[in-house]
Design a binder for these strands. Sequence first.
DNA 1: GTAGGGTTAG
Length: 531
Amino acid sequence: MADSSTQVQHPHETSLDHHTQIAEIPETIFPFSFDPKFYISALFTCKNLTQIKQVHTQATVNGILQNLAFANKLLYIYAQFKALDDAYSFFDSMRERDSVSWSVMVGGFAKAGDYRNCIGTFREAIRSGVQPDNYTLPFAIRVCRDTLGLQTGRAIHDLVHKFGLHLDPFVAAALLDMYAKCGVLEDAQLLFYEMPKRDLVTWTVMIGAYAECGNANESLVLFDWMREEGVVPDKVAMVNVVFACAKLGAMHKAKLVHDYISRKQYSLDVILGTALIDMYAKCGSIDSARDIFDRMKEKNVVSWSAMIAAYGYHGHGRKALDLFPMMLRSGILPNRITFVSLLYACSHSGLVDEGRRIFYLMSKDYSMRPDVKHCTCMVDILGRAGRLDEALELIDNMKVEKDEGLWSAFLGACRIHRNTRLVEKAAKSLLELQPRNPGHYVLLSNIYANAGRWEDVAMVRELMTQRRLKKTPGWSWIEVDDQTHQFSVGDKTHPRSKEIYEMLKSLSAKLELAGYAPNTNFVLHDVDEEL
DNA sequence: GTAGGGTTAG
C-alpha cells in the first residue's frame, strides 16, 4: 500500500490546488492523477451520486482504491448520500479495513435507520477481531435504544467494559440514554455515578433520563448539581430541564427555569419554545403557554400541535379547533398527532359533531387513515355523549388493532352511562388483552360487586390470587410553596396527616350539606384495606 | 468516521 506522502507525484498536478482544480474543470472530465488526496478533495465536491461514482471509477482506474484513507472517505460519502448498497458492496470488496471503515459502515446503516444491518455489521466487526472504538460503539448502542433492544444493549455494555471504554463520554452517554429509554433507570444510575467526570451531554442525558422514568424531581436536583460542578448548560440541556418541569407539573419550578432561560438569553428556537408551551400548559397556565406560542418567530407542526393539545386538556375545545384553520393558513400541514390533539380537545369539551367532522376530514382531505389513538378519541367523544352503540360500532368496524386504551375509553363511557351489559364486555376485552395487569381484575371485580354478583367477584379475586397478581397503589403529589407533598391511598405518613384528614372530613360534610351525593360506584372494593 | 432537544388517546 503506497503512502500518499511518499508517493512520487505525477507531473500533471505538481503545483495545483486540488479544490480549485476540481472547480474549474467540467464535471465529466477527470485529469490523470495518482495522488489519493486529489481524489479525496474530488469526493467532497460531489453534488450527487453520479459524480461520486465517476470519482470512484476514475480512482479504480488509477489504482487509488488501495489507499485506505481514500477508501474510507468514499465509504463515508456513499453513506452520506444514503447509497448504502453502493457503500456496502464497496466495503465488501475492500482488501484492507480499519476501525474507521467499520464505524463508517455501522454508522451509515444506523443513520439510514437500517437497524438490522447496523447491528449485523457491528457483529461482523467484532467477529473479525476489530477493536470496537468510541465511534462505532455509540452507533450500535443507539440502535438498541431505538429498538428497545435491552438485551443486545447489555451485551454491548459488557463489550464496552472489556475494552475499557465505559468512561468515554460518547459511549457512556449512549449507554445512559439506551437504559433510560428501555425503562431501566437503575442501570443508567449505576453507570452515571461510576463516572468521575461527566461532560455536558452526559449530564443532559441523565437529566432527561430521570424525567423520562418518572423522577423529574431528581432531574432538577441534577440540574443544580451540574451547575455547581461548573458545567454550563446549553439550549439542549434546557430543553430537558423544561421537559422535567412539564412532567412534574410544578409551576414554581417552571417559572424559575423559564427565568433562568431568559436571563441566559437563550434564543427561543422552535424546539425550546415548544417545550416551554408544553411545560406551562402542564403546569396549569394556559395563558403563559399561549404567550410563548405568540412570541415564537418560527412555528412548525409540532408547536401548533402542542398549543392545540394545551387548549384541549384545559377544556378549551373551541380555542383548540380555532387554531386549526390558522395553522393551515400559515402554511403548516397537520400530522397524525395534530389530529389526535384536535380530537382530544373535542372529547374534553363535548364537541361531538366537530369531532366527527375532524375524524372524517383526516382521511378525506389528508389521506391519513385513523390509527388506534384517533379511534380512541372518537370512542371517547361518542361514549361520553352517551352514544355507546355508535362507539361500539366504530370499535367493531376498526381495521386497526385494538388496544388497552381503546377499551378503557369505551369502558369509562359505559360506566358513566351505567350500561352494565357493555361494561362487562369491555372489561373482559381488557382482561383478554392484558391478562397480567392487576388493574383490570380489580375493575371487573368492582363491576360485579356493583351488580351484586358476589360469586363472580369471588371468581375474579381467586383468579388474581392464582396468577399471583397484586395491585400496586397509585401515588399523587402536589406542590405547595416549593415543597412537593405526596400521597397514596390510606396514607398516614405525611407529617400533617391528621389535619389533612380532618379537612377532608369537613369538606365532605359541606358537600353533603350542599346536596352532593358521592358516586360510590367507581370506588367500591378498590382497596382491600378499606373494606 | 461521533452525542444530548419539542407535540399525541385512556
